[in-house]
Design a protein around this nucleic acid. Structure first.
Lengths: 154, 154
DNA sequence: GGGTGTCGGTTCGAATTTGAACAACTCCCC
DNA sequence: GGGGAGTTGTTCAAATTCGAACCGACACCC
């Protein structure tokens, strides 16, 4: 096949920065959430997406597609959160197979309690560290990256 | 306490883009590596770092600090890779407690076989998707983010 | 020398994640 | 109606992850 096009210096720095930041940010976030609110990062994401959804409910599949988990991983997390009373399952009337995950009062309360600390951390470790130009470059560049991966992966 | 400074639109887009890209890129990478070379992403990272080190060996602690794993996670991975013959342990002469992980011939060969496919994927999903300006913004911005997390975490 | 504190790595158990296999169901086209 | 074919969500076993506890050295200080 064609010669491999190795990464030059600039590309290498960007790639390494991305990889390192990705790992470190995720770790830090997980820790802050767990310490302050007893939620894992995946669980927090689920709460956010449910809270943003109409009627505070989403189909399992939609929730899984968001990202993060495989289907089975989602099943597991929702089960955990159901035990904790943050979420409730409701079967879909029009399709017997379908299952909605519904945010409970307690779930919403838990999210609202966790959000301020979470946002503060996000600013601290990433948003407030970047210049406005860098923020825009991230939004545009990584947005495009995600878009491609999403449709390609489908 | 002070009011929470929520994220505005621009900040939100950057943050979401980062989170999504982080998750999707990692997933994709892991999959490509596993399919093409039977290596997990953590294992690949370990090989890369050992190959770059003088004498192809590093102390366990240094390897763990790089990033990625907790100490125990590293122990696990090195054990796996040792079974697979990619790496070998050598105890440190000057400090009985210390352990070096040493890259083997087979390990190096495995890395060299995996590298081209890996780099190609990295280009495909990230590097070649970004403009040169975005690459520089990523390198600078996320580099700074990582640096802070590293020293702060220490 | 004899504490005392810290370091480097491993071990342990518990939690989480994944992919593959599965069962139940919907859809579509004949 | 009657098959496939594709979906949906769960279950299962296996792999991986983490943190806390641990053990054996080092280091230092008196």
């Amino acid at each position: 096949m064609a010669e491999t096009r190795w990464l030059d210096d600039r590309e290498m720095r960007a790639w390494n920065g991305f990889l390192a930041a990705s790992a470190l940010v995720n770790r830090r976030l997980d820790q802050q959430l767990k310490d302050d609110s007893g939620l894992s990062h995946p669980q927090y994401e689920i709460l956010v997406r449910l809270a943003a959804a109409p009627d505070h409910e989403l189909r399992m599949t939609e929730l899984a597609n968001g990202l993060i988990n495989s289907k089975s991983g989602l099943t597991y997390q929702v089960t955990q959160m159901e035990k904790a009373g943050l979420v409730r399952r409701r079967s879909c009337p029009s399709d017997v197979r379908g299952v909605f995950a519904v945010l409970t009062e307690a779930g919403l309360a838990r999210l609202e309690a966790a959000a301020p600390g979470h946002v503060t951390t996000v600013r601290e470790i990433l948003v407030d560290v970047l210049t406005p130009e860098q923020l825009d470059a991230l939004a545009a560049g990584l947005g495009e990256v995600s878009r491609r991966l999403r449709e390609q992966g489908a």
